[in-house]
Design a binder for these strands. Sequence first.
DNA 1: TCGTAAGCGAGACGGTACGTCGAGTCTTGCT
DNA 2: AGCAAGACTCGACGTACCGTCTCGCTTACGA
Lengths: 202, 202, 202, 202
Amino acid sequence: MSTDGQAATSAGRPRSEEAHAAILDATLELLVEVGYPALTVEGIATRAGVGKATIYRRWSSKLPLVIEAFGQLPALEEADTGDLVADLESMLRSYVRVFNSTPLGSVYPSLVGDCANDPELGKLLSPLLMERRRPLVHAFERAVARGELGPEIDLELAADMVVGPIAVRVFFSDRRLNPRIVPRLVQVALEGIRNSARGGSA
Amino acid sequence: MSTDGQAATSAGRPRSEEAHAAILDATLELLVEVGYPALTVEGIATRAGVGKATIYRRWSSKLPLVIEAFGQLPALEEADTGDLVADLESMLRSYVRVFNSTPLGSVYPSLVGDCANDPELGKLLSPLLMERRRPLVHAFERAVARGELGPEIDLELAADMVVGPIAVRVFFSDRRLNPRIVPRLVQVALEGIRNSARGGSA
Amino acid sequence: MSTDGQAATSAGRPRSEEAHAAILDATLELLVEVGYPALTVEGIATRAGVGKATIYRRWSSKLPLVIEAFGQLPALEEADTGDLVADLESMLRSYVRVFNSTPLGSVYPSLVGDCANDPELGKLLSPLLMERRRPLVHAFERAVARGELGPEIDLELAADMVVGPIAVRVFFSDRRLNPRIVPRLVQVALEGIRNSARGGSA
Amino acid sequence: MSTDGQAATSAGRPRSEEAHAAILDATLELLVEVGYPALTVEGIATRAGVGKATIYRRWSSKLPLVIEAFGQLPALEEADTGDLVADLESMLRSYVRVFNSTPLGSVYPSLVGDCANDPELGKLLSPLLMERRRPLVHAFERAVARGELGPEIDLELAADMVVGPIAVRVFFSDRRLNPRIVPRLVQVALEGIRNSARGGSA
DNA sequence: TCGTAAGCGAGACGGTACGTCGAGTCTTGCT
DNA sequence: AGCAAGACTCGACGTACCGTCTCGCTTACGA
């Protein structure tokens, strides 16, 4: 008899948003302080001033909790200077900086590794990771709009061409990547993207 | 230097090579069967028919053991057809295949994640990971030797340009990557590498 | 008696007598079904169709609730045949029967054990336990009135002399006491009570 | 190839007798300090300087552990003065004293109550409780040997006749029983035992 | 007749202990 | 000295209840 449309609020005391936020905050703090492998639900509960049951009522285990907390983190900070090269270099540099200077760089692969054995969780993490490189895709879109690049560009591939080589080094080779390779990398990647779009050498 | 022979062979019963191999085998088997997060030293010992102490006598913890077992795995199978494009496409396709169809794809990031919090272990893992993409570098070296590419090429960067975009997708986006993007990717990467080596558009 | 009425009736909704009864009933049912150690307030609330708060509004904890529920149970069913021996034997037999065939036998000592660490609760339980053997005392009183026993009898002691040996066996030795010892026990106890009342052998 | 007859000592490190003893000691200490209901396995483990697993390896739960610890306690201290009345009075007085002055008196009924729902555990506790009143039975045996009592006496019943009324009061009525009733009780009980043995009044 | 004050079922809250499991270490007797 | 076996301490796991605290509601009373 009304236009309420609400979900009936279900009986009983509603879940505390305070507790929810405190848990996510504590998770991120501890992630930074002790790293993912040493992260414990017990520790999170203590830090958040919350009972363990309150955590398990919301998340079935440590992993989805960390994924949600991780999702709260700011993504790649978007740069929009009007110039594609400048945009990409700026964003990649900030990318390298974050992974060099915060323990969050180690959370990334841990999460991926732990999710790999559980497709359900993978589905939670994947879109989140995709979302995080969206600023790169946007930079290419703007370049296309400005006429810097032809409209036939594969935006996803272009983004992966610039972020892939960085990611591969940052995760799988020597820690503390030197950010000086960023300009060279951007140059090579853009050269390939531009030329092969026009037909390439093949 | 006369009676040197071995490193003094030290007194007592020598370590069993059988046990050593059995442990590494059991580790790989279990890695495949249950995945890295569910891997336990106790399980490895049982499977190998070995006491836990025998494992800890050789490896200080689970991680270096897994790293050594991981190192036993065959690397990227080298392709040498005389044509750079063919070589790269063949190797990347096998790369995608392995990560799509074996649990090895999950071990990789797990290892990296766990190592990230212990630099000592990172030093064990890093060279191993570098070694695994060596076939890619070799393909570029052969191309340079054949004159397909100029000698001023940055081989490491070149390798990362082709493997990076693949790796980034295989690990961080939708599982089960479609291998059809391989030729397009190789084309774009080579275009960039070739052109920017000659001075590029910058 | 004019304006006194009740104890101010206090404002607000009165406590539901339905809920009260449902709680006590549920308590007894569960006591029988799962036993005292496995009895939970949560279970009682669910069974009674009542919120936990409604229970805690009336009883400070599980123990006083169980004590009150326990108090609702029928006491030793009084036998009055005109003959002391017959009365005692009848009542003791029913005593043995109840403790052999219902979980009430386990509630008794559990209650006592839990009360022992809280004198306040002990004060609630004690009179209740005293009340339950009152029929035995009455039987002796009637025997005195009939002249079967002299008036100098210590009624409490007499009651304990007949119920004590039974209780001690029912609680602390082999479960499922054989009721055939009842007549012999009554005989011995009465013999002692009668003789020592007249001065005894001391 | 020998007459060893041992149980082969089974492989592996043998269970530590030190730990075993430390656990039982800690259990008794805590039983006295905090009482049975507040006794926790975690507390015992901490006090004993032992891991929880070491406790659960030996006892399936708190109850059998407490039963075993309880079994270590000294029984009713035997009195042998050559006179039945003196023996009984002495032992009963010590019985009353223990229950009046130590928290162990509360452990007794708690144990019985918790065992009542598990026949398997009851079988562990029962013989132990029987054993504890053995000194009373012995006193009657000596009296028979001395000719104080006829040989047709039912020793078990006799023991229960003296301890039952005490037990029933100590457990189920007012805490802190007055030991002055002991002589009177012994007198009444013995009177009954002696007279009904000769045929009684029935 | 209506507010106001309590009681109501429901269920989340911070805690505490449970019983299990795995890590890495230690102690048997045997090789 | 190494070996398999298995107990050791430690500490986190995820679950279950405790006794308390909101929720939105119902129910009586007194203004």
